[in-house]
Design a protein around this nucleic acid. Structure first.
Length: 538
RNA sequence: GGUCCGAUAGCUCAGUCGGUAGAGCAAAUGGCUUUUAACCAUUGGGUCCCAGGUUCGAGUCCUGGUCGGAUCACCA
């Protein structure tokens, strides 16, 4: 296949031409236009980012004072000169700052804002009163070359500045530049500064530019893209901390497996050349994790990707992040208790409260309902009886599931659809299994783990029979897993929690694609998929 | 896979009944030594997603396609 040219990739236009020309002129003035580093340091020596600098006590307190002064001013009035002078004296005494970032606007006049992706900091340069670092040799450019460099900066470029802090006439804390260093060029134009990128396709395909746009956008509904993924990260780290605080150990089990089993789903298939065998991307880590319970890891978890070769929808992506964990000697009820507490803690940490707003609904995590599937499909006070397992499930999925807005554990699943869970001691037709529903969406699935190897074998055989009958998603017999259980597994409970869906809830996003940085999409036509066969050894 | 909706300048979007392709931001040029999304003036910038069709004439109407979104089915 032909290799696309650089121009094919960046698609030149008048804007890129101007930027490329600026880059060449800058190269003549400063030498290397892509220098290797810029040492950032600010007042106490620890503030390396714009955000850290703005949050540092001395700076934050002056900003707070100024906000107070400005709040008492009328429209168009400026802070009194004596207030400003006093602050400037205090700021000047703090010393020199070295700070770097991306330009959030084109340089206009003498001002520009730098961003670290979170906060913005204004910098001011006085024509003729600052120098530009030459990146090729230890030397400085002075006026008029320094001013030329300033004028060659574009919206989106990276610069580093050295200078002192001051407040402007309008009361904004800014850096007065003494030295400026050019750090990197943006050859492509930045997104609209008011709206960022709105086209959902470009937002998802080019998440980097969505992130640039969303951090700079003035107007946005709800969380910015960056905030969505920061909240996702907070959720995940708080879950990890909670599990580790409770004695769980994180493990990694195979993603490429000889058998796709442990869940009801269609797998992705691939091929290992050296071994000449087919492998499947895992659909669940479940059976590997329980092998570890057999081996003596009494509390074990894995938080990573699963792959299912199925449809794409607002709540399905071919690869999705799932938390699975197992606890020895626990049953389904203990697992529901633990899950409830863990989710409450995580929601609190990620959002700051237990009540979230999702698509107009208030969802309260402070109390999870528990009702049986039979109760859920029945009129109040009259439990439906005589339904077959499949009718019960169908009625539940069609009539009830979407009505479960508040966190609700549905318990007492039919055993026939739960091939890995233990039967209830009271009713052999019922599995000790639950699913957690929030906003009509399944978020978790857990059960008392079946640990009788012979019964597990029989259940697999039953699944294989259904497979024979054409059920592509019936579970595949895993002989080694049956062997593992035969070494003895303690009673245990396990759970799987859909992290993407939980994130959707906590970020008020309707689509799973909005909470996955790079969701699955068709490849762009002009950049065909790589022909991997041609790289194969012959 | 079914149904519905969408694609116009780098970005955000208008475009009436089928009659010369528009605005704001961004860009270029000039001015400006403290501006707060948008300083002032001037200028340039279009395969109206693609391919057909109807028409004197199509961004606009019709058919097919591509890509995307919503929704239903399947699924977690």
């Amino acid at each position: 296949m032909s290799i696309p040219s650089f121009e094919d990739i960046i698609e030149p236009n008048d804007q890129t031409a101007a930027r490329a020309e600026h880059l060449e002129k800058l190269r003549e003035l400063v030498g290397n236009v892509y220098p290797n580093k810029f040492s950032r340091s600010a007042l106490s020596g620890d503030e390396d980012t714009v955000t850290a600098l703005k949050q540092w006590d001395a700076v934050a307190s002056i900003e707070a004072e100024m906000a107070d002064v400005k709040s008492k001013l009328g429209e168009g009035e400026r802070p009194p000169a004596e207030v400003k002078d006093d602050m400037n004296e205090r700021l000047r005494a703090l010393g020199t700052v070295r700070i770097a970032g991306r330009l959030t606007t084109p340089p206009r006049g003498n001002f520009v804002h730098l961003t670290d992706g979170i906060s913005k900091l204004q910098v001011y340069c006085k024509k003729g009163a600052f120098s530009v670092v030459r990146n090729d040799i230890q030397d400085l450019l002075d006026f008029p070359d320094s001013w030329t460099v300033w004028q060659l900066l574009d919206h989106g470029d990276f610069i580093g500045v050295e200078g002192y802090l001051f407040v402007t006439n309008t009361g904004e804390v800014s850096v007065h530049i003494e030295k400026l260093q050019f750090l990197a060029k943006a050859l492509l134009p930045m997104p609209d500064k008011m709206h960022g990128i709105e086209d959902p396709e470009i937002k998802q395909r080019r998440r980097y530019v969505d992130l640039i746009g969303s951090s700079l956008a003035v107007e946005h509904d709800g969380l910015t893209t960056r905030e969505v993924f920061e909240r996702r990260a907070k959720l995940i780290s708080s879950i990890r901390r909670y599990l580790e605080d409770h004695g769980y150990i994180e493990v990694e089990t195979p993603m490429l497996t000889p058998k796709a089993t442990g869940a009801a789903a269609k797998p992705f298939k691939t091929h290992h050349n050296a071994l000449d065998i087919d492998l499947y991307a895992r659909i669940a880590p479940e059976l590997y994790l329980k092998r570890l319970v057999v081996g003596g890891f009494e509390k074990v978890y894995e938080l990573n990707r699963n792959f299912r070769n199925e449809g794409i929808s607002y709540k399905h992506n071919p690869e999705f992040t799932m938390l699975e964990f197992y606890c020895a000697y626990m049953d389904v009820n203990g697992m529901m208790d633990f899950c409830e507490k863990m989710l409450q803690e995580s929601v609190q940490k990620a959002t700051g409260g237990l009540v979230i707003e999702y698509e107009g609904n208030k969802i309260d995590f402070s109390n999870f309902r528990r009702i049986s599937m039979a109760e859920a499909v029945s009129e109040p006070g009259a439990i439906a009886t005589g339904l077959s397992d499949s009718d019960l499930l169908e009625k539940f999925e069609n009539d009830v599931e979407h009505t479960l807005i508040q966190p609700t554990f549905i318990v007492d699943f039919p055993k026939s659809i739960s091939p890995l869970s233990k039967a209830s001691p009271e009713n052999p037709q019922i599995a000790e299994r639950f699913e957690l529903f929030i906003n009509g969406m399944e978020v978790a699935n857990g059960f008392s783990e079946l640990n009788d190897p012979k019964e597990q074998y029989d259940r697999f055989v039953d699944q294989m029979a259904q497979r024979e009958k054409g059920d592509e998603e019936a579970m595949v017999l895993d002989e080694d897993y049956v062997r593992a259980l035969s070494y003895g597994m303690p009673p245990a409970a396990g759970i799987g929690i859909g992290i993407d869906r939980l994130t959707m809830l906590l970020t008020n996003k309707h689509s799973i694609r909005d909470v996955i940085l790079f969701p699955h999409m068709r490849p762009e036509k002009q950049f065909a998929t790589e022909d991997t066969d041609s790289t194969e050894e012959s």
